[in-house]
Design a binder for these strands. Structure first.
Length: 262
DNA sequence: CCGCCAGCCTGAAGGC
DNA sequence: TGCCTTCAGGCTGGCG
């Protein structure tokens, strides 16, 4: 579920709340995430920084220990000040000091919660200055896959998921089935600009909630109001009134306007 | 190397 | 009401 803007929303909320606090206890409720003893190395360690890389949340502790969380489709990281309000989807509870709780809730149990020192193998951060049309041209060169599939490849660009891929291509007026290496310089310029604009706008609106996404206070995002094509099959294109179409690429839905996107 | 697809889970929604 | 199928903001491993 959560893509870059949703994860960024969670990280920005979490940072001031948990930085400097100590992890007093790790309660693993879902056995799939390992035994409590596996997390003995993080108990009593202090939280130094909270950061995002792609769709990963990286909580850096003392002694360069890193707690890495990925919310996958339905994960939520909830912050609770007074007591831990767990429900049937609570998979992990971190008890912090001073008194607070951090819960990992996840309906589908795809979320990951790991301690590791191995670096993440991810592509460029799309909101950095280094992500420009020249860089995009370099990584697109020679790629025969559809541009939609390319945008979803986390080893090329980190953080774009299925909703924003459709939205970015619509804004860029590029057909999702275009062969990546066929993009012209002007299109690459447009694509990088629209990627940044849409991701920033979505962060400003606390992300998109279609069904499950919630921030650390269990509040929904607001960007779904600004979505133009995702999940809008059959509805009129906001630009030309042509019906939005839905196609499958790599088993995943893509939405686009057949008139506006080429 | 690259590209594709099933599998991992649970629940909601739609068809009959 | 129920049963069955499909679908869902993601990623991985194994295959060709």
């Amino acid at each position: 579920m959560p893509e870059l803007p949703e994860v960024e929303t969670v990280v920005r909320q979490l940072r001031p709340k948990i930085s400097g606090q100590r992890i007093k206890k790790v309660i693993i409720i879902d056995r799939k995430l390992g035994s409590a003893s596996r997390y003995s190395t993080i108990t009593n360690k202090k939280i130094r920084t909270v950061a995002r890389r792609g769709k990963y949340i990286i909580i850096r502790l003392n002694d360069d220990v890193r707690l890495i969380i990925h919310l996958r489709m339905t994960g939520q990281l909830l912050w609770q000040g007074n007591s831990a309000q767990a429900d049937k989807y609570t998979r992990v509870i971190l008890r912090l000091s001073p008194r607070a709780y951090l819960l990992l809730n996840d309906l589908r149990r795809f979320a990951t919660f790991t301690i590791t020192k191995t670096p993440l193998n991810l592509g460029i951060e799309p909101l950095t200055a280094a992500f420009n049309s020249k860089h995009l041209g370099n990584i697109l060169a020679g790629s025969k896959r559809a541009i939609k599939d390319f945008l979803l490849d986390q080893k090329k660009i980190a953080g774009i998921g299925n909703i924003y891929a459709s939205e970015i291509l619509f804004a860029g007026r590029i057909h999702p089935r275009r062969i990546s290496s066929s993009l012209k310089p002007a299109e690459m310029l447009k694509l990088t600009a629209e990627t940044k604009r849409i991701l920033k706008l979505a962060i400003k609106h606390q992300g998109t909630t279609i069904s499950d996404f919630a921030d650390t206070n269990k509040k929904k995002g607001n960007f779904q109001r600004l979505i133009k094509v995702y999940d809008k099959e059959g509805q009129p294109c906001p630009c030309c009134r042509t019906e939005i179409r839905k196609i499958k690429q790599q088993g995943r839905s893509t939405y686009f306007c057949p008139h506006c996107q080429h």
